[in-house]
Design a protein around this nucleic acid. Structure first.
Lengths: 223, 223
DNA sequence: ACCTGAACACCGTTCAAGT
DNA sequence: ACCTGAACACCGTTCAAGT
């Protein structure tokens, strides 16, 4: 994050790109007005020409992620298969940026690409036969679930540094292994699975399947 | 949060109680070392006698919530009914403190009451017939989903102040209602449901049902 | 239009004392 | 053992200039 030669004419676009890089490299708390300015060789106050306040930076960051959601076009397959792909596209956009993923939680309905995503998910649920009230609640819940899945993966958020990360994972596993097998028979035998499950390549696909299975199950119960 | 007459002999217990009250009243970002000290009529540095650093305050806060989980005793009912009650107990402990709920996300496996909860959930999933790897991933995902559900409810996190809260909800609904019904037919017709669904008394029970339905569905698919 | 500079009210935390 | 005091390196943000 070396200070760039102050290539005057800053704009929101490039600033938010820097903010995203900062968050990816050092976590969301590294995204400060002062560091953002510093990265562009400029005074902190210069940021206020482009953003009203820090919240607007975070809003823009969330919008950037939601913009990356590549919504698949509607087709004639059953609702649950289409929803799996829609939710999968959402997760795919979040996964590269776990430190920022949480920002989308409260901003899906306040950004343009987020609205498109929500409209699509809601449409599929209503088309499946859920009432508007239930579809609203379930759509909200489904998106929430998936965001947290991505965030939890960030485990030791700071430092994508693999050395620090591996040390944290080893410590976590050691803690579980050290537990009393009498009091915690399942946790001790699952120590390995619990520490590595979020690293499995299919973890997020499984997460989407889990959510879709829940919706399908509820739909079946409603008859 | 008036400064209390410095009733000397502070301890972790009372400090964390104050921290929780602070978070409930003004959000997690109101929990600062300086304000915590101020609430007890004492210097910020006095906190370091009771906590190693701020992280330890947050750890203790999460542990306090997890301690409130009233795990129902195991019985002879099917695994999914028991799991519904276990997850319900978890949610019930988080709901009164939405601003703090997120802290439990990364701390379930590092606190004693969290370990008891995880052991129980994992045991039920393994007993249901899931392999240890899948049970670990699904247990993690289930808890993540529910935490976020509670956090999302916090919507306008700051200010339990009902006046500010209602204003935010009205604004949210107005934004949805103002959308183009052509581009967003489902969102506009669900404007009301989307803004109020998290306020329904059965929202969290439905969230638990949703998660359990997902697990039941996946179990059935595995045959 | 865009950026600077000094200032203010906040943070967490260290070091060195006080009783 | 428990608390204080001064200091440091950080925050976001306001106000008033500069070009």
């Amino acid at each position: 994050m070396a200070a760039q030669a102050r290539s005057h004419r800053l704009n929101k676009e490039t600033l938010v790109t820097t903010a995203l890089a900062l968050a990816d490299a050092e976590g969301l708390e590294a995204v400060t007005i002062r560091r953002l300015a510093q990265s562009h060789g400029v005074t902190p106050m210069a940021m206020y020409r482009h953003f009203a306040d820090k919240d607007e930076i975070l809003d823009t960051l969330a919008e950037r992620l939601l913009n990356d959601v590549e919504l698949p076009p509607p087709d004639e397959r059953p609702w649950d298969e289409q929803l799996r792909d829609v939710l999968g596209a959402f997760v795919a956009a979040l996964v590269p940026h776990p430190a920022v993923a949480g920002l989308t939680l409260t901003r899906v309905l306040t950004s343009d690409p987020g609205l498109a995503l929500a409209e699509r998910a809601l449409g599929l649920l209503v088309g499946a036969g859920f009432g508007v009230e239930e579809a609203s609640a379930l759509g909200t819940q489904a998106l929430c679930c998936l965001v947290t899945l991505v965030m939890a993966d960030a485990g030791p958020v700071h430092s994508v540094d693999p050395e620090v990360r591996d040390a944290a994972l080893r410590a976590k596993k050691a803690r579980l292994t050290a537990l009393s097998p009498r009091r915690f028979p399942h946790l001790t035998s699952a120590a390995d699975a619990l520490t590595t499950c979020a690293l499995q390549p299919d973890f997020f696909a499984r997460g989407v399947d889990f959510v879709v299975a829940g919706l399908r199950g509820l739909r079946a119960e409603r008859g």
